[in-house]
């Protein structure tokens, strides 16, 4: 039931139809370069972008919709959450603007309305309203080359591996998003290395939320434990002081 997107870098011609379709569907405004934007094309008004790499390679950047999203796990009010259908969606009415999601995302996806007085987090939501009703996201619908396609994640994986098998030597034998950070709903097939889509340090194949899990699970123990230790310490010290007092008294009486 988990939907996803497969983007085949070799097929993309960089026509930006997906970008303009996305803008239209989500009523995003025209994008002007702002001082707070960083050159990957994503912005509060651009939920997906095309990165151009040498050799006319075009890579579409968008939210990866991780299977276990770091952003959703760190949001203190649960404004971000992973839906059953696969999209990681954002509820602006809950958000308090802490921007922890932006810090935690291993792909550096969420963007912020820095210029607004009532700012929200902006990112691709896999056209949740559309896919809920059984439609396609706007971007895959708009793609003239079928370079980016929408479907069940498991089926997309099958398609991807089939393409690699059928065209030996055309692709790098890896489906980006199959395992990274516990797997993502948005997958890539490519003939060039796509390491630049995430941070340089290897993010590993385990879901990121696991890293805080141990710390968070030990919270109640630490809380009660510290209380216990403190009470115990206090009890011991008081006992000792009483003993000392008694001994002093005894000494005093002995002296007398």
């Amino acid at each position: 039931m988990s939907k996803g997107i497969l983007t085949d870098v070799t097929k993309c011609i960089g026509c930006l139809q997906c970008v303009s379709a996305c803008k239209e569907v989500h009523h995003l405004e025209a994008d002007e370069p702002r001082i707070w934007q960083k050159n990957d094309g994503l912005s509060a008004e651009n939920w997906t972008s095309i990165i151009t790499k040498p050799g006319n390679r075009f890579i579409r950047k968008q939210c990866r919709h991780c299977l276990e999203p770091a952003c959703a796990s760190v949001c203190p009010v649960g404004a971000l959450h992973k839906t059953k259908i696969g999209a990681v969606v954002y509820d602006s009415s809950k958000c308090l603007g802490c921007r922890y999601c932006m810090m935690a995302c291993p792909f550096g996806i969420p963007r912020y309305d820095w210029d607004k007085i009532v700012p929200h987090v902006e990112k691709c939501i896999l056209c949740y309203d559309k896919i809920k009703d059984g439609e396609q996201p706007a971007c895959t619908q708009a793609c003239p080359q079928k370079a980016t396609i929408f479907g069940e994640r498991s089926e997309l994986l099958k398609i991807a591996h089939q393409r690699i098998k059928e065209n030996p030597g055309k692709y790098i034998n890896k489906v980006w998003g199959e395992h990274e950070a516990g797997g993502t709903s948005v997958l890539y097939l490519s003939d060039i290395d796509l390491g630049f889509l995430s941070y340089p340090t290897n993010i590993g194949n385990k879901p990121l939320p696991d890293k805080t899990k141990t710390a968070m699970e030990s919270v109640p123990f630490a809380f009660v434990g510290m209380g216990g230790v403190m009470l115990g310490l206090n009890w011991i010290i008081r006992r000792r002081m009483e003993f000392a007092k008694d001994e002093n008294k005894k000494k005093d009486s002995a002296d007398e």
Binding site: S73, C75, C95, L96, G97, Y112, V118, K213, M216
Partner: peptide, 17 residues
């Protein structure tokens, strides 16, 4: 960004965070 929503932590819980 939205300081007037700071009380949301009281009603919307996400204990994983």
């Amino acid at each position: 960004g939205l300081p007037w929503n700071i009380w949301h932590m009281i009603i919307y819980w996400n204990p994983h965070s």
